[in-house]
Amino acid sequence: MTNPLLEAVAGGLHTVDLGRQLRVGMPQSPNHPQFWHTLPRRHGDMERADGGSAANDMITTGTHVGTHIDALAHVSQDGKLYGGADAGASCLGGKYVEHGVHTIEPMLRRGLLLDIPSYKGLPDLEGGYEITIEDLKGCIEAQSVEVRPGDVVLIRSGWGKKFDEGAAYVGGPTGVPGISEAGAQYLASLDVHALGADTIAFEMLPAGGGHAQLPAHRVLLVESGIYIIEALDLEGLAEQAIHEFFFVLVPLNIFGATGSPVRPLAVVPA
């Protein structure tokens, strides 16, 4: 009996890495602890009798730093999490038992890239630009794709090109492009499983507004139970015009955490 999945692997696969490399000093939201990496032991600090030596590492990091996924426990509204769970009572012993990142099953799903700048004939979107429902519908039609229930939809704004610039990527004075409440409601109505973007907070941030209000997070995480993936690298997909793919994402299995660093992959036949 043949296995179609193994046959596809044997036929050759092309993989596009959608995750950012974790580096000390990379841009991040000021609301979260930074990533730090150090070597407690370097080669030569201790040598075995045969001359061998081993080095080891230690990292500390917030769970919402670099490319990461938001668990449903990440955001509450009026004291409630998704499904009406009590945000206070759900945090038992300092862990979010009910909606922590450990409850996110590995994602092996159909993925779609909505390349908004390409659809609009622009290299990138400007800071503070709201990606409207009309933009989303127009891009879906132009790319000849269909959003199906259970899909993972990734939205490219082009803002990801600024990641290596640091503060410019955070976009405090300029704002950051993305969907807002209306776009989130529209995509939620399509019954997607997760949404992602190449920006620091997924949704549109107005110039000078920072993270003061995040209505799309409320719509998706609290009201709809849809996961959010942030700080994706979508330039490779855009350059290769890959709009439909097999999406792979596995969060770290951290009990009760509100999020996790991830290294998502887009996979297509070679």
Rank of each mutant, 00 (worst) to 15 (best):
V152S: 10
Y82H: 13
P264C: 00
S118Q: 15
I200V: 15
S189N: 07
I69C: 03
A216G: 09
P123K: 08
G25W: 10
V147R: 06
P106Y: 06
G175R: 13
S144I: 00
D17N: 11
G88F: 02
V153M: 11
V267H: 10
G11M: 05
K162A: 08
D70F: 00
P30E: 11
M1W: 05
P149L: 04
T258E: 00
G84T: 02
R218L: 07
R218W: 03
A89N: 09
V267L: 10
S76E: 14
Q21W: 07
M46E: 13
A216M: 14
L22T: 08
L72T: 03
G11E: 06
R156G: 10
I140H: 03
L39V: 12
Y186I: 01
E239Q: 15
E130Q: 12
E126K: 15
L221Q: 10
A167L: 09
Y227R: 12
L122H: 14
A73S: 14
D78I: 04
S189F: 03
A71S: 11
N3H: 09
Q143L: 09
N3W: 03
A201L: 12
E146K: 13
L81D: 00
A197G: 10
I179R: 01
G259K: 02
F255T: 09
M107S: 02
P215G: 12
A241H: 13
H68W: 04
E244M: 06
V153W: 07
P149F: 02
T61K: 10
M58C: 14
G62H: 08
H64Q: 06
A73N: 05
L22E: 11
A257S: 14
I69T: 06
K95H: 05
E98N: 01
V16Y: 08
A197V: 03
A10P: 01
T60Y: 09
A194N: 08
S180T: 03
A167W: 04
G25P: 07
G111F: 11
L234V: 06
W159F: 08
S144M: 05
V24M: 14
A142N: 05
G128L: 09
L232N: 14
I226G: 01
H32M: 12
L125S: 07
V192H: 01
A8P: 02
A216H: 11
A8Q: 13
T132P: 12
H211E: 14
R41W: 00
